[in-house]
Amino acid sequence: MPDMEWLSRNKIWVGTAALVLIGAYAFYAVNSNIAVSMFSYAWFLAVPLVLGAMVGVIGERSGVVNIGIEGQMLVGAFAGFFAAAATQSIVVGVIVGALSGIAMGAFLAFSTVVGQLDQIIAGVVINIVATGITSFYFESGKTIPRGLPNFDVPLLSKIPLIGPVFFSDGPIALFALIIVFVLHFLLFKTRWGLRTRAVGEYPSAADTAGINVIALRLFNVTAAGILAGLAGTYLSMEATSTFERGMSSGRGFLALAILIFGAWRPMRALAAALFFGFMQSLASQLQASDVVNIPQQFINLLPYVLTLVVLAAAAGRVRAPGAVGQPFVKGD
């Protein structure tokens, strides 16, 4: 049975997940109100990180580093918000936000895959361009009709704890949750996934097997931009209904950390994002209830320090896709 096989290969992860779940429900049994609020908050903060990390997963699994996620997100938030403000249509806003993400993704894709620009430099350029343009064209006083509403998913939202945490949010949050599982499926179970992984690991093998490496990379990196754009629209139109200069405030970089923390795998990245979200949740809970008095800044630093610790500890075990960062030149 392949399922048993899968279980035995992933027993550490399955075990950890089970423990976490048991712990969460124990917490829920003790104080359902606090438990729901803290986990909801964790997920609320994790949504853009998850979406950002998925952008990274797709890019790096195809062999393209994306450190421009921060900029893509910011432009998505900006373009989405102002399009919604101009048309007074939230749907238009979300679409424009996603499209702007695609545009940024296309820049990264074409400049690096076709133009052979260094991938890291391209990402830095995206970030700098995004900051410049979104602050220069920022206009105050614009409002959107209303942020994307929260809604209850039938049946699922009735599940204790998990229901109110994951199935009573807005559409982008729900989408983020779904896309993790969809992406996991696509990456490991489908033709697209097999080819994408091959292209990111060893492009010349894919090339000789008749796969168009350039086209697949272009498509993946460009399309992943949708998720970055949506992460942005989540910030400006679902989590809030406003745009601020520099609104992404480092979430794109944090997503990058989560991507690595999650070992380039969608589900683990989701777990990592939730963990970071929960740490923040815990920090603010401790602060609000005046229980302990550790400086807030320290807890805020935790994700970054943990990332460094994990990377240092996991040296050699966590491995990036083999061809990440390298341009593919046919016939080389």
Binding site: R195, Y202, A209
Partner: peptide, 20 residues
């Protein structure tokens, strides 16, 4: 060798003409 090192023999074998 044009084989993807982190994939299995079967995966490498089907790469490029996968059956779905």
């Amino acid at each position: 060798f044009q084989l993807v090192p982190v994939m299995t023999v079967a995966e490498n074998m089907m790469l490029g003409h996968e059956t779905v």
